[in-house]
Structure formats: structure tokens, C-alpha cells
Design a protein around this nucleic acid. Sequence first.
DNA 1: AAGTTCCGAAACTAGTCAGTTCCGTATATA
DNA 2: TATATACGGAACTGACTAGTTTCGGAACTT
Lengths: 212, 212
Amino acid sequence: MTQLDLDERRSTEPPAKLGRPLDVTRDADILDAALDVLAEEGFDGMTIDMVAARAKAGKATLYRRWPSKTELVIDAVACMKNSDLNFEDLPDTGTLRGDLVAMIKPPTIRDAEKKLRVMAGLISLIARNPELAEAARVAVIAPRAEINRTFLQRAIDRGEISPDVDIAMVSNISPSMVTYRTMMLAKPVDREFLISLIDKIILPSVGLGAAA
Amino acid sequence: MTQLDLDERRSTEPPAKLGRPLDVTRDADILDAALDVLAEEGFDGMTIDMVAARAKAGKATLYRRWPSKTELVIDAVACMKNSDLNFEDLPDTGTLRGDLVAMIKPPTIRDAEKKLRVMAGLISLIARNPELAEAARVAVIAPRAEINRTFLQRAIDRGEISPDVDIAMVSNISPSMVTYRTMMLAKPVDREFLISLIDKIILPSVGLGAAA
DNA sequence: AAGTTCCGAAACTAGTCAGTTCCGTATATA
DNA sequence: TATATACGGAACTGACTAGTTTCGGAACTT
């Protein structure tokens, strides 16, 4: 069951005729709590009681809305999609380097780090749960590369870089190295690291080595 | 308790005076079984019974040798160190590209993939268990970057690339992108991908874009 | 106010699994 | 052969947790 399914379910029972209506904002609170616990404990370390306590809800309430722990987590991951970056207001500075540097903002970095912590808690499951894997890919993994793809395509269109650049490969450099640095090396992803990444790896790979 | 501790314990009871001696090769079988299960199920999915069954051993035997599941896993990870690549016989072809390409061998790739599957099953724990994190870093993470560092240093020494190259950054490109591709994108790491990685990302980042 | 529905809290069920104990057997020394 | 030791297997304990049920109360509708 996905968030969309829930919305649908509710739209078929119009504005709720009698008694207290199902509160949609309650769903969001619970999903947020689930993400917090997930980031701190991982999937197996997370218990339904933890989530209920964090959301100040009863365990029964969670089971009234989601049929199982797994479905709750899938839904939580799917709803993690656009917590920070809106695709509409991406920077457009006129240069590839300008666009990439403009993405380095503390809130964006924090958002990415939380998502990575959630991902870390899920990875061992992803190999065995295709539905969860799909939710994670759509919500977390794809958007990061998509933004880079957009920047690169713009740069090609304006003639800044060669159209022969392997966009698929280059757009994954930053997600790969940020993820590895966080999850494997446990080192901070700070502005200095990201600037180095742009100037020493990404720009040279598109032929903007010294010209930038 | 580490493998070293076990060896020590055994060396203090000389060649075992009476009865059946503790069989050191039995340890290796059990640790291998643990790695197999770990790679397939992840830490939380792995049970002691599974490991015992796979090693054709009794559960009690495992607990005679390791005090807990966690210690067993830490030991297994630590022993994963040099299953394939020996630091002595690294290729030395005379060019950076030659060295990097020479590392692309099916057995090496398979070995790396298994290690990555084990890592995937551990990541959510690594954030909460420093001892395990250290074992994983020493056995899996550090060696991969170390090899690249060696190749890069050689290239600097022979004047092939500039001494200003950020070795720490460049030596992590390949581990990062291979890990991400495997764990997040669930795409195969084949020869074609690795060649592209070398020619399109790594070599340009050290100033060998077209000259190679 | 009456009726309905959802709520949080808590008790409960059932299954799983880490870790322990026990036992009959196999293998080595002496 | 007698003895000591570690073995595999199986039964057991205790803790934990997913999921269910129950219940009194709160909030909304009419």
C-alpha cells in the first residue's frame, strides 16, 4: 500500500460523514517518525513501538493504516521524495560549475545525509525486497542523478561541454562519492570536499579541466 | 575476540596434550560459512543455526570458539582481508592506465562483489558498532584505495602525472562508483563499465584526458 | 445531548532466535 | 585398552517483537 493508495481510499469516503475523520496529517507525523527511527536504528533495529512512541500514537493506530511494518517503511521511503529540493527552482547560473556549486547549501547537505542514513538502514533489505528497492530508487537515488543530468544537458545545449560526454556516468560521480564517503569512510561531507569533487573530478571528466 | 586472539589462545596450550585438539582449519570453515550467510541474508537475517548448518557444525561448537554472534561476525570480516589480491604481485605495466586495466580480471571482480554483498549486510550496523566498523575498514575498504594509491604514486614517481594530483580523492573514485553501482543501482560491474570508468573519469582527473 | 468513529494505552498471542546445557560419539594420547 | 577432549545434535530457556484485541475517552456530526 502506498501513500497514493491511502489518499485514494480517503477520497472514496468523501469528507467523512460521522465521528472523527481519519486525519491525513497524522499519517505524515507517523511516516516522519518512522524515517527518524529508521535512520537511527536501521530496519531490523526499528520496532513498531518505537515509531508509535515517537509519533505519540498507539501501535494499533499504525496497524489501522498500514498492514505491516514493511508496508509502513515502503510508504515512509516513498514519501521522503521531495523534502528539500524542488525540481522547479534548480539554480541556473549559466555555467556548469556555477550550477554545481550553487547546489552546495547546508540544508541540502543535511537533507541528503538524513536520506543516506535511511538508505544505510535499508540496504541489506533492498537486495531481497524489490518493492522497497523500487521505492528507494524513485525517492532517493534517481532524483540525485537527475539533477546532475539536467545540469549536464544544459551545458551541452549551450555548447559549454562536448555532446560526447557520458552523462549517465558523470551524473553518478557525485552521488557515488558522497555515499561512499558517508557510509564507508564515515567522513563528513563538507563544502571543501564537494568543491574538490567538482573541480578535481567532475569538471575534468567533461573536459573543463583547466579552462574552468 | 579476534582471529589473533584465537591463535594466541591455542599457542599457549602447546600441541594439545590429550584428546582431540582444537582444529584450526575448522575455524576457517566456520568463518567462511558465516561470510556466505552474511552475504546472502545480512547480519540480522543471519542466524547462528544457519552458519552452523552451512559449516556442518553444531551450534555449541560455534559458541565454544566465539562468545557471541557479533564477535563471530567481526572475526569473519577481519579474515576476509586477502582472499584474492596479494599486495606483492600487483601489476606493474609502466603506465597508470595499464596498471588500472590489468586489475580488471573476473576473479578479482567476483571477489570484490562478494565483499560488497557482505558489506551491504553490515552497513546498518557499522554506524553503531565501532569495532565492526574498524574490522570492515581494515579488511575491505582500505585495501581497495591502497592499491589505487600505489598505482598513482608510481605514476607520480615516473613523472607520468603531476605530483599535485589529489591522491586521496582519486584513489576513492573507483571504490565509490563500483560500490554505488552495485548496492544502489543494482547494475552489473562488468569490464565495459570499468574501462569507461578508467578512461572517462579517473584518467581525466589526473590530467591524462586525451594524452593517454 | 446522542450517536458514531477514531484515538492512545495496555494486555495478550505466537513465533523467532541468541545463547546454554546435555548427551552419545569420535578421535587422539598414553 | 583406558582416558581425556572436542565434536554434532537436540532440547531447552529467556528475551524480544510483529501483530491482535480490548477498552475507556475524546472529538466530530446532527
